[in-house]
Design a protein around this nucleic acid. Sequence first.
DNA 1: CGGGATCCCGGATGATACTG
DNA 2: CAGTATCATCCGGGATCCCG
Lengths: 110, 110
Amino acid sequence: MHIGCPVTEFQRLISGKYKLRIVWDLKDGPLRYGKLRNGLLRGADGSPPIAPRVLSRELKALTDAGLIARNDFGTIPPKVEYRLTLAGRSFIPIIASIQAWGTRHLRRAG
Amino acid sequence: MHIGCPVTEFQRLISGKYKLRIVWDLKDGPLRYGKLRNGLLRGADGSPPIAPRVLSRELKALTDAGLIARNDFGTIPPKVEYRLTLAGRSFIPIIASIQAWGTRHLRRAG
DNA sequence: CGGGATCCCGGATGATACTG
DNA sequence: CAGTATCATCCGGGATCCCG
């Protein structure tokens, strides 16, 4: 596949409702699937909880993209950790900018 | 509507295949609909050209979001310009970071 | 506990034709 | 020139069930 424009590619890369949030939530260290899931639940303002399929899907996409890495401990019961790769970590400042920008310019409508 | 997390809100805001590109392409000054359209065509690597409906839709969304402004000259033939608002302009550095990051980490596969 | 398999739905995207 | 109307389609997202 061709890459025409890095911006457009980025668009595709983070397409997915929770991708940025996932990367962001991993900034302080590895998290297990369940923890990640619970973190994404925040906003009990009526927003539906994330479906396992969706979280799984986005985690896989981010892993394939090289932003995060999967650590399967292979135990019973299962334990799987996700952590940022170097590429993923290098992206954190940008999300921070986004967050700052959003806080200033997306100030709630209601 | 509630805003849980600025990052998630941002996700929603730029959801749309070309939104970031549109903002980015406007950074050097206002552009007319057709110019914008042609600019988005780049990447004649087989990627389908943007459908008028889609461009129109994204422009409206960005306008509603307050990132760009629409200037209708009301002439025949029609002339409509789009330009960044202050909020939109303040977002340019972030897209620049994204571009820089993408150039470093999304290095083309082919 | 961490998902995979399956089914469903709505919205986003795309192609084409048409108009003020 | 700058869109809108219309129709077809694809895909992301959600819900549920189940298994190792």
